[in-house]
Design a protein around this nucleic acid. Structure first.
Length: 270
DNA sequence: CACCACTCCTGCCCGC
DNA sequence: TGCGGGCAGGAGTGGT
C-alpha cells in the first residue's frame, strides 16, 4: 500500500530517469482508474519536456511547464521505468513514453489516478485541500497542538485525514502512534503539548525510517516491478494482532477505528 | 464545520 | 482441489 514513504521512494526512483526528457507518446490501455484517464493526453503531452517530479502527500506531480500530470498510486499502484517496446503485463494501464524509455503504471485495483491540469497545480481541487506535509519543518508538536485543540476526533483517524496531515495512511499511523506511546483512541484535543511533540517526532521518524529502508532499492525502479523496496521494514504493530509486542511482549490488539484496522499495544500505548 | 459511513476494485486468504 | 465469501485500504463524496 503506497503511503507517503513509498510514493517518495517512487519519486526518487523515477526522477533521475525522466526529468529533462521529452514525451514522445502516451499510451492508455485502460482508462478506468478512480476517475477516467483524460482523453487527448498523447496530443497534449507529446513534445513537452518533463521539468521535474515532485510529491505532495501521496500524489506525484509531474511538471511540464504549461501544466502538470497528477498521478496517484491508490493502494495497489506502482510505477517503473521500462523499455516502451516491452510487452505490457496485466494491469499495466498507462505508459508515458520518453523516446527509448517509458514510465509504466501498473494498478490492479485501479484506485489510482492519472489527471492533467493546466496552470497552477496547487490550485487543483485534489491538491488544494491537502493538509500539512508531515516531513516539512512546519509540522511540529507546536503545529499539532495548535491544530487539534477543538478536535473531538480520536488521534488515529485524525492523523489519517489527508485534509489535516497529508500522506499518513493506516500502516504509518499505527506505527507512529506506537513509537509515540500514544493510544490510537486518545481524543486529539486531549493530547498535551509534550505528547504532541512526541507524536510529531514519531511521525517524521517513522516516515523517514521507511524512506531510508526503501532507498536501498531505488535501482529496482528500472526494469523491475518498482515495488520491491516496500515491505521490508519490520512493523512494531501493523498486521501483528495476537503477536507479542516487540518491546514489552504484551499481545498486540486489534480494533476498528474509523473503519480501519487499528493495531496497538495496550501496555506501551496509553 | 466536523465527523462518519459508504463506495470504488481486485488479489489474497480462509474454510468447506 | 476448487470455489465462494470476506477482507484489505486511499480518499472523495454525500449525509447527519
Amino acid at each position: 500500500m503506497p503511503e507517503l514513504p513509498e510514493v517518495e521512494i517512487t519519486r526518487r526512483g523515477i526522477a533521475p530517469h525522466v526529468e529533462g526528457k521529452t514525451v514522445t507518446r502516451v499510451v492508455v490501455r485502460d482508462r478506468r482508474l478512480r476517475w477516467p484517464v483524460p482523453r487527448g493526453l498523447d496530443e497534449r503531452l507529446s513534445g513537452l519536456t518533463l521539468l521535474r517530479v515532485i510529491r505532495r502527500g501521496k500524489y506525484l506531480l509531474l511538471d511540464f511547464g504549461t501544466g502538470w500530470l497528477i498521478l496517484h498510486l491508490g493502494m495497489s499502484g506502482s510505477l517503473r521505468v521500462t523499455d516502451p517496446g516491452s510487452d505490457p503485463k496485466p494491469h499495466e494501464h498507462f505508459d508515458l513514453v520518453f523516446g527509448t524509455i517509458a514510465l509504466r503504471l501498473r494498478d490492479p485495483r485501479r484506485f489510482g489516478a492519472v489527471l492533467w491540469t493546466s496552470g497552477d497545480v496547487a490550485a487543483h481541487p485534489l491538491i488544494a485541500r491537502l493538509g500539512i506535509e508531515p516531513l516539512s519543518p512546519e509540522f511540529s508538536g507546536t503545529w499539532l497542538h495548535a491544530n487539534t485543540r477543538r478536535r473531538r476526533a480520536e488521534i488515529k483517524p485524525l492523523l489519517m485525514n489527508a485534509a489535516i496531515v497529508a500522506g499518513v495512511g493506516n500502516v504509518y499511523a499505527n506505527e507512529s502512534l506506537f513509537r509515540a506511546g500514544i493510544s490510537p483512541r486518545t481524543p486529539a484535543a486531549r493530547l498535551s503539548r509534550a505528547r504532541c511533540d512526541k507524536l510529531a517526532h514519531a511521525v517524521a521518524e517513522t516516515l523517514n525510517a521507511a524512506i531510508d529502508a526503501g532507498g536501498s532499492s531505488l535501482r529496482d525502479f528500472v526494469h523491475s516491478n518498482g515495488a520491491s523496496g516496500w515491505f521490508q521494514q519490520q512493523h512494531f504493530v501493523y498486521d501483528r494482532a495476537g503477536k507479542p509486542c516487540r518491546v514489552c511482549g504484551t499481545t498486540i490488539g486489534l480494533m476498528r477505528l474509523g473503519q480501519r484496522s487499528t493495531f496497538w499495544c495496550r501496555a506501551c500505548q496509553r
